[in-house]
């Protein structure tokens, strides 16, 4: 742990060293209490516990470029099994970009290049021979703006199982739809109108429909990009409760602009800043005792 130093010139050296050797940062394990709040603003390596003991996904030195713009720089991060990982940070810092790497949604963006290693259950999903279609069946996604298909509620949920051939019969398909809607805490509200358009639901219901759609294909990881940013507080509370329930069966990665939300739903929190992953750690710890000056500035509301 010789990077840690209280004198600023040493600190600068250390940060330079870490920028050049980011794998060194990932080698570091749980810092002691004494580490807290000792990294100043210039330090751009990742501090905190970026590895999980039971990783579902493991990212190492992920870089994303949009043309010339370097949107994500050398990010290494784990998503643990049955955990909710929250990603916070000022807007434009690359949270969505990073999230979209995890199911290779960035493939669909023209001019976007992703490098690095992303393992799902130990297998590299960035390998050229990986087919994104089954990958996205394993890593589901819920978007910022609820985007149900302009079809019936039933069809919205049934689409995924149908294209993946998960149901042998219509009865089985119905079963999947019902249980997905139940898991998404939406069943009671829509059970009488499954044939009605999904777009006719309220915003919060639409978002839960999108979650039902995502879990209907039994993913292992669910990515959520600011799922509550367009919702009222009551819908938000419902979705947060839902996320907590879903954690039992899935790993969840959630981008949020609300630190309260991150604190409420997540076990671990990652703080991004201008394309760098600044700090990762247990949510309980980060909000109480951030180690990095930038993290502290952000969560105390000095900017963001």
């Amino acid at each position: 742990m010789n990077e840690r130093a209280s004198e600023s010139d040493m600190e600068a050296q250390a940060s330079q060293f870490m920028a050049e050797n980011p794998e060194r940062t990932s080698a570091r394990r749980r810092p002691t209490e004494a580490d807290a709040a000792t990294y100043d603003r210039e330090h751009r390596g990742t501090v905190g516990e970026l590895r999980s003991e039971v990783p579902r996904m493991r990212c190492t030195r992920v870089n994303v470029r949009y043309g010339d713009k370097h949107a994500i720089r050398d990010v290494s991060l784990d998503v643990g099994k049955n955990e909710v990982l929250a990603m916070i940070g000022p807007s434009g810092c690359g949270k969505s970009t990073f999230l979209r790497c995890l199911n290779r949604m960035n493939d669909t963006v023209a001019g976007c290049r992703v490098t690095g290693e992303i393992l799902l259950d130990g297998k590299d999903i960035m390998a050229p021979d990986v087919d994104v279609v089954p990958l996205r069946a394993r890593v589901g996604m819920v978007f910022q703006k609820p985007n149900p298909f302009p079809k019936s509620i039933f069809e919205n949920v049934a689409f995924g199982p149908r294209i993946h051939g998960l149901a042998q019969s219509h009865a089985e398909l119905e079963e999947i739809v019902v249980s997905s809607l139940q898991k998404a805490n939406l069943w009671d509200e829509v059970k009488d109108r499954l044939a009605h358009p999904g777009t006719g639901l309220s915003g919060g219901q639409q978002q839960r429909l999108c979650i039902a759609r995502a879990i209907a294909i039994q993913p292992e990881v669910i990515l959520m990009d600011e799922p509550c940013s367009a919702l009222d507080p009551i819908s938000t509370a419902k979705i947060e409760q839902l996320i907590d329930e879903l954690r039992r069966n899935y790993s969840i990665c959630i981008v949020t602009h609300s630190m309260q939300q991150a604190a409420r739903v997540s076990q671990r929190t990652a703080y991004f800043h201008l394309g760098d992953l600044i700090e990762v750690g247990d949510t309980d710890r980060i909000f109480v005792k951030p180690q990095h000056q930038l993290t502290e500035d952000y969560i105390t509301g000095r900017f963001g």
Partner: peptide
């Protein structure tokens, strides 16, 4: 968003 939604559940 419609395309994203479909791709997001693993549609080709």
């Amino acid at each position: 968003s419609i395309r994203e939604g479909a791709l997001g559940v693993g549609a080709s």
